[in-house]
């Protein structure tokens, strides 16, 4: 048969170049950020904006350095909440998807409830969890699970159900049962979908942790933000926001890198480079 250009060649060519390209891709974004920061700094100094309204970038950096011990401790508690919450949300989401696929009758009962529950504004549940579970780790983890399990469940479910019916027929024709098809075909097939759900879930987890801390806490970055704002220490609020963003980014990329390691066959969705 004739040799045809296949995806591999293209992938091989771009593999080496992609790191370099990724860096050069960042240049415009970095330039824009730098410009915004310089303008911000100049505007604050020029118009003499009071620091409690909007601190200059230099003041935020100074606050970061000054409060680094407190911020580090707060980061640690928030990170623990995110980790526990995200792990539990993933387990719950996967379990819900598996139950819906495995048991048709139970799935029919469960699925509408899951969707209905998704329409509840879960941020509003935070005070209730504080009421039930106090000020510790539990209410934050519960809130994260409630917010973040849904994208995991829905994406995993879509993955489990997207196996081609003709392939299922093929498996059945040689005597494979539902359980075997689930284990050997549906679950591996759903992994790229699951990873997409996990990426959404990790960003939800960060939001859940901060909101949970707003509702009532004595530690964590959300607590720092709230406490600092009551003190009109806006520079510290912004410093904590910077840390939250960095933390969220780190968690997101941790999931993204584990995706590349765990499901290397997953289609890469690179919005900027689709031809």
């Amino acid at each position: 048969m004739s040799t045809q250009p296949v995806a591999e060649d293209i992938a091989a060519n771009s593999a080496g170049a992609s790191a370099h390209r990724a860096l050069s891709e960042l240049v415009p974004a970095l330039l824009l950020s730098a410009a915004v920061l310089v303008l911000w700094e100049l505007a604050i100094r020029l118009f003499e904006v009071p620091s409690f309204v909007l601190p200059a970038p230099s003041a935020i950096v100074a606050s970061l350095m000054e409060n680094r011990v407190q911020l580090l401790a707060a980061t640690r508690s928030t990170a623990v909440e995110i980790l526990f919450g995200f792990a539990l949300a993933s387990i719950v989401g996967v379990a819900v998807a598996l139950v819906i696929v495995r048991s048709e009758r139970f799935g029919k009962a469960l699925y509408p409830l899951v969707v209905l529950f998704q329409t509840v504004p879960k941020v509003a549940l935070a005070p209730i969890f504080i009421l039930w579970f106090g000020y510790g780790l539990t209410p934050k983890v519960t809130l994260i699970v409630v917010i973040a399990f849904f994208p995991v469940a829905i994406d995993m479910l879509a993955g489990l159900q997207s196996v081609e019916p003709s392939f299922v027929a093929l498996m059945q024709s040689v005597g494979a049962g539902r359980g075997e098809i689930l284990l050997r075909v549906r679950i591996p097939h759903s992994l790229p979908h699951l990873m997409a759900g996990l990426k959404v879930a990790i960003t939800f987890s960060v939001i859940g942790a901060i909101v949970g801390e707003f509702a009532g806490a004595n530690a964590g970055l959300g607590y720092v933000i709230q406490f600092a704002s009551t003190q009109l220490d806006t520079a510290l609020v912004f410093a904590a926001l910077v840390v939250v963003s960095v933390l969220g980014l780190a968690f997101y990329y941790a999931v993204e890198f584990s995706e590349r390691a765990l499901v290397p066959w997953a289609p890469k969705f690179d919005a900027m480079h689709r031809t």
Binding site: M171, V174, H189, W265
Partner: peptide, 26 residues
Amino acid sequence: GLVFQDATLLPWKSALENAAFLLQTA
């Protein structure tokens, strides 16, 4: 032996493992 219009191969398996998959199931 069945062959459909779509090859319906498992994307995480190599050509060899795909070719062996149904035999291993049967």
